[in-house]
Write a protein that binds this DNA or RNA. Structure first.
Ligand SMILES: [Mn+2]
Ligand SMILES: [Mn+2]
Ligand SMILES: [Zn+2]
Ligand SMILES: [Zn+2]
Lengths: 143, 143
DNA sequence: TTGAAAATGCAACTCGGTTGCATTTGAGCC
DNA sequence: GGCTCAAATGCAACCGAGTTGCATTTTCAA
């Protein structure tokens, strides 16, 4: 049993969720990827070790987002990406997405400047802040 | 001929695009809406005055975004929204989207704090900044 | 061991958006 | 006013991400 699997189990049980093989596999695959993958890429990664239907993946992602273990972000292409929520940390972070290869990478925590709710119309409540920088990554820019 | 139609024609011709009835109708409908609609809502609005196929709308939106007349933004639900790009202004603005009714509203120009490319990995080029605040709007919050 | 609840798989479906191709429109020209 | 040809539009079929309903399997507690 790898320690990443142990970590995955710990986070699941800590959230009161059953540590099933697919859920552990999803968390392990996600931890092994250096970026925030789309569902299809994550499914491919999981399937290298575990048989899983795409419906199960989508249901698992819903569950993990609901439990606060994962964060869901909107890609410039309209497809969702998921990344690990830093454990015990609640500072939101933004993402960079390459318009050529589509890879989305996590950025360090945002400056507080964004919390400036001064911009907001009156009477609204903000639950989530999404910041995405779109451009060309080093590799696609012919690095 | 309303002056909003005249404005629409002006912007189209200024961009070197033919001012066809559908294009003018799309720009007029968009200018009349107080927010950044999804394609279906925009199509409904246009159809109150003009017969238009959804494919024509999507092609028109592509064209207007390409010409810099419209901006395209990703909604929290994965569907795109479009809003008028302020003429002659290039400061990016963010959006607020209500998680209950789905309405997306434009916000005033962003503070410069976001341009802090200090957060970025080396070798990347940023072309577009997308900022979206998700929460509950005044009306849905039972105003 | 067994029974019920939860998790998973499979097929069919929805919805936003796209593609190919036939038809119509309209600006430039006579 | 009538041609001409490219651009614009409509229609049908399609695509991919994500969802729903329901049958089957797994898990865990009694
Ligand atoms: Mn992230
Ligand atoms: Mn806007
Ligand atoms: Zn790239
Ligand atoms: Zn609302």
């Amino acid at each position: 049993m790898t320690d990443s699997a142990t970590d995955a189990r710990a986070r699941l049980e800590q959230a009161g969720l059953e540590a099933t093989p697919r859920r552990v596999a999803v968390l392990e695959a996600l931890a092994a990827l250096p970026h925030a993958p789309a569902a299809q890429e994550l499914l491919d990664a999981v399937r290298r070790t575990t048989r899983m239907d795409k419906v199960t993946l989508y249901r698992t992602l819903d569950l993990l987002v609901e439990a606060g273990i994962l964060q869901r972000h909107t890609g410039a292409d309209g497809a969702f990406r998921h990344c690990m929520a830093p454990a015990g940390e609640n500072a939101p972070h933004g993402h960079f997405q390459c318009t050529r290869c589509g890879v989305m990478t996590c950025l360090p925590p945002l400056p507080e400047a964004l919390d400036a709710a001064a911009l907001l119309p009156a009477g609204v409540t903000v639950e989530h802040v999404e910041v995405r920088l779109d451009g060309v990554c080093g590799r696609c820019r012919q690095g």
